[in-house]
Design a protein around this nucleic acid. Structure first.
Lengths: 383, 383
DNA sequence: AAGTCACTTGCATGCGTATGCAACACTGTG
DNA sequence: CACAGTGTTGCATACGCATGCAAGTGACTT
């Protein structure tokens, strides 16, 4: 789909007031003398839309280069010149056209941010904090929300079309074709909360396996011996690592039974699966280890309101992420934290490294979270 | 802040392998014969980064125009030509540079989306669904996350610098200076979940006043007579309208007492304010009307876990929005829905109208939500 | 057979900015 | 006073693509 985008009249040049082709509009129209031509209601820009650096140059009586240099960091401009340019710019309401600038500099200062499932408050928090941080250092953020139907590859090819400076994929897996696509086009890719076997792209993630092990040990230490794992999306690195952490902790102890159901990191799915398991009653868990908080909320609600079970008295529940609602008292969820501020910091750091040297080796940052003990899991002495 | 963006080496031309200035590189470098020059590891594009339409044209043996027309909707290209171009493009991995295209067409196909506070799941849902819809019709979404510290005007001036096709402000108020800025630059502004007195920009919102009245009547009909209003941010249109709806319903009935506290649409603030009120005990409400769901969650938690009150047996709570967690069984919140899909649809419709005719009159769409009766408020017969 | 019309194609130009180069102005040193 | 050095400025060009115009090609009508 290499089309023009939204289907709109292909005419272009919405500013051409007269019918004649643009290249016949006499150059005089560009001068400041024609400001009131046609009596348009906009500011001083006349009929030609926003003022350009040439307009400013003419008004200030300097060259276009001087205007450009005034707004280019590190360029050398005399104080006098700068003042005249700034005065003229203010009068015309001039602002540099970032699109044109990008064409020259080959840098857009736009970072792509792909995310799937903002309904999960943890992802929403990542997006918000990442976006804030990027804005703070002068980047713009182009948001890609991925759904199950969207062909993520197709969509993200646009990253290349737009020549974005980098692509951050938060909680989204990377297809190998996209990875190589970006790589061959020199667009750095940073994975957040995912890892990949594809080399060439950086990643920032939490120590999922160690965290899950720590969490599992806590659960087991509290005296639980029949643990149910509510798995996330099967193919994701987070699910694999967390499950590995859990099962290794279980394997290290005698007499702990393990069962799993598939929650797919989805609220409804988790609720349905837990209901099905409990009605089947083949396996009656005394603790439920959810691959993330979001599913834990669904599970807790199902346990309490559909099955009349008390949490944690009748059954314990733990999650992973420490997302916002985990600390809401209705859930008060024991979980393992993914420290978003640190993850954001790592992303920024990688980004800046890459910006300075596009050929820098990809980095893989693993951040340690911590066990967050709240009330959804019976503690050691509560038995 | 009209600088070059992130502070990076201002050198540019990262592709210039040799030290000589670009304009001395012989034209031959542009031809396909020089593909293997310098043995770069990228695909067939040689040393010059991504392939351009000129590269494709040379390889296909046609003019650059032909390449451009192949990827321009509505342009006329012969089947033979198109085939040759596509073959060449595939071989070179060519993708049209949208930046360059934008410079010509004066349309970026990028929509700005400003939002404040993604922690509120309702806002997160708006962003997700809006973004999905925009992507579906070929737009890109540039996300602006506003915090209390960000100077929204300063930040959003960049909308103009980037020549975005439109700006959508979701749950964010519009400063008049920004409004006029956009207007004078011909950038359409659409407010979602806010209205404004500034003319010139469109808006999409729910019938806040009517909804609040309906909700209030339901609460009163259930027998409540001491209603506490947890206000949202005082200056927002939503808060004003909802409070007006509530107080008018109260005024219409005899013997209903009213009190208010300020929650500022914030989770913690609401919890603190409710605690303070209940400990002061000047006013003991039998129902709490929260200006949005998000605060209602905080309030319910505070009531239940800090004050030992049962909801709805001891006290009723209602919210506004019908955001995701409102249907989570821990809250099971009675609320008034803001139908996001319809709001999104309205935004898209306005956008397309504006795209076809930039001078179209601004539209103000008001959408009807509906009363969502759940379990957080005592019903008529439950007394 | 000449004319008409629809469709393609290439040429040339322009979108708004950044930047290498050369020319210049000015300061301070020997 | 000549000269090197530092800082400014304008000129010209390029970034990659879209598009008006004119020229060209057939097909079809009269």
């Amino acid at each position: 789909m290499l089309t023009n985008g939204p289907s709109l009249p292909a005419c272009g040049h919405r500013n051409s007031v007269v019918k004649s082709p643009l290249n016949r509009i006499p150059l005089e129209l560009h001068t400041s003398e024609s400001i009131y031509f046609k009596g348009m209601c906009t500011l001083a820009a006349g009929t030609r839309g926003p003022a350009t650096s040439i307009d400013v140059a003419k008004l200030a009586g300097v060259s276009q280069s001087a205007v450009s240099r005034t707004y280019t960091k590190g360029a050398s401009v005399g104080a006098e010149t700068r003042a005249r340019v700034e005065a003229a710019a203010a009068k015309l309401g001039y602002r540099p056209n970032l699109i044109a600038r990008s064409l020259m500099t080959r840098r857009t200062n736009i970072i792509g941010l792909a995310v799937g499932g903002l309904a999960n408050p943890f992802y929403a928090a990542i997006v918000e904090q990442l976006s804030n941080a990027l804005q703070e250092i002068g980047y713009h953020v182009l948001l890609f929300t991925l759904t199950d139907e969207t062909d993520s590859d197709e969509l993200l090819q646009q990253v290349i079309n737009l020549r974005l400076d980098a692509l951050i994929m938060a909680s989204v897996s990377l297809s190998s074709s996209l990875a190589s696509s970006c790589q061959s086009n020199g667009i750095p890719v940073i994975l957040v909360n995912r890892t990949t076997s594809a080399d060439g792209c950086s990643s920032v993630s939490t120590d999922n396996e160690a965290g899950a092990t720590m969490l599992a040990q806590y659960v087991i230490d509290a005296g639980h011996s029949r643990i149910l794992y509510v798995a996330g999306t099967e193919t994701t690195s987070t699910n694999l690592e967390r499950e590995r952490g859990l099962t290794s902790a279980i394997a290290a102890r005698d007499g702990v039974a393990f069962q799993r159901i598939a929650g797919d990191y989805d609220f409804k799915t988790s609720a349905q699966e837990i209901a099905q398991l409990l009605s089947g009653s083949n396996f009656v868990p005394d603790a439920i280890f959810c691959a993330n908080d979001f599913m834990a909320f669904a599970v807790m609600d199902a346990l309490r309101f559909h099955h009349g079970l008390r949490v944690p008295q009748d059954i314990s529940v733990v999650g992973f992420d420490d997302s916002g609602p985990a600390s809401w008292l209705s859930y008060d969820l024991t979980t393992y934290s993914q420290p978003i501020p640190q993850m954001v910091e790592a992303v920024i750091s990688i980004l800046q490294a890459v910006a300075q040297n596009p050929d820098a080796a990809p980095q893989h940052v693993v951040i340690s979270g911590e066990l967050i003990i709240r009330g959804s899991c019976r503690g050691r002495g509560d038995g």
